[in-house]
Nucleic acid binder design. Structure first.
Lengths: 180, 180
DNA sequence: GTCTATAATTTGATAGAC
DNA sequence: GTCTATCAAATTATAGAC
């Protein structure tokens, strides 16, 4: 892995653990084994780094979800897959969703980072809405509402699990997400 | 209002807007009209201030909810009151829930602040579980699950609304919360 | 691309006068 | 209880050598 990739990966990990204002270029540099000036070579400002990390995270996340119209998988299974992606983040990686963290801090973010965070949620809702719309007896408004509820519940469930130090709090919360 | 109260109120506002790592003693001091040394007189460390702010917020929030067993109000109306309290925070005050913000940042907090944040969620879940348990056809496990879902959805809905700059995203999400 | 060196600012926190 | 003054450390960021 290139130093550039290592920087992005380390920054993602640190933001997901302690937030955008909870890491520094020096910490990234130390973790990767370079000097902070070298991090600035790749990313002139902290906002540049944050925006690239958020965009890469969004791409990776959507890729893991697959196409929302996939005929080979039931919409119910797709919702379960969505939840599973978040379960992996909080239970296995023991971290927040990157954009859940950035979303909480949105008023403290440079514009370019806030913009990418917004796109993450827009695309999540778009994906979930298409999946819910495939279900029988779910209209357009119902699908949109369920999609908003699912994103919100999953993000809040991650906060709950980490604060209570109880991964089962995540399970209890996401069990309330609509699967029909 | 005393300077002490002003400091607590200002700190709450700043944490809810930009997070625990997004404010400084000097900013608080400037907003209140004192010097940062005076803030340190009341709160020796940042953790002391954060813990007091979190505890005061929890007390205020629970007081606004009222007793969970109140016979004069239906459990459905109590859930609506819970949602209304959070709606006020994000729509009127345009800020995150203090403990939703701190919960996201929990790994970056001093122990005493993380502890108070945990208590907020424990008490929220306790209140909601008692309310849901009053509903017909809702058993103990169902009440606990619904309570976790409600807290998570509300916190996530606030993140959504602020990031998307769309208060209706909050409404769509919380409409998915169980009221029976 | 990475380094050394450094600038300019902010941070949390303390000592001691009033 | 608030002030002035100060500290040591950390922060984002840049200049210029290799």
């Amino acid at each position: 892995m290139s130093k550039l990739e290592e920087i992005i990966e380390t920054a993602e990990s640190m933001i997901r653990e302690r937030g955008y204002n909870g890491f520094s270029f020096r910490e990234i540099a130390d973790a990767v084994g370079v000097k902070s000036a070298s991090v600035h070579y790749h990313f002139p400002t902290k906002g540049d780094l944050g925006a690239v990390v958020a965009r890469a995270y969004t791409e990776k996340f959507l890729l893991a979800l697959g196409a929302p119209e996939a005929a080979a998988i039931t919409p119910k299974k797709q919702i379960e897959r969505y939840i599973e992606a978040c379960r992996y983040a909080v239970v296995k990686q023991r971290k927040m969703c990157l954009c859940g963290m950035l979303g909480a801090e949105v008023a403290a973010l440079p514009d370019e980072v806030a913009r990418e965070t917004k796109i993450f949620f827009e695309k999540n809702i778009e994906w979930l809405t298409k999946v819910y719309a495939r279900m029988a007896n779910v209209g357009a408004a119902g699908a949109l509402g369920r999609a908003h509820g699912a994103v919100a519940t999953v993000e809040g469930a991650m906060i709950l699990a980490r604060t209570l130090k109880d991964v089962d709090a995540f399970e209890k919360a996401v069990k309330q997400i609509a699967t029909s």
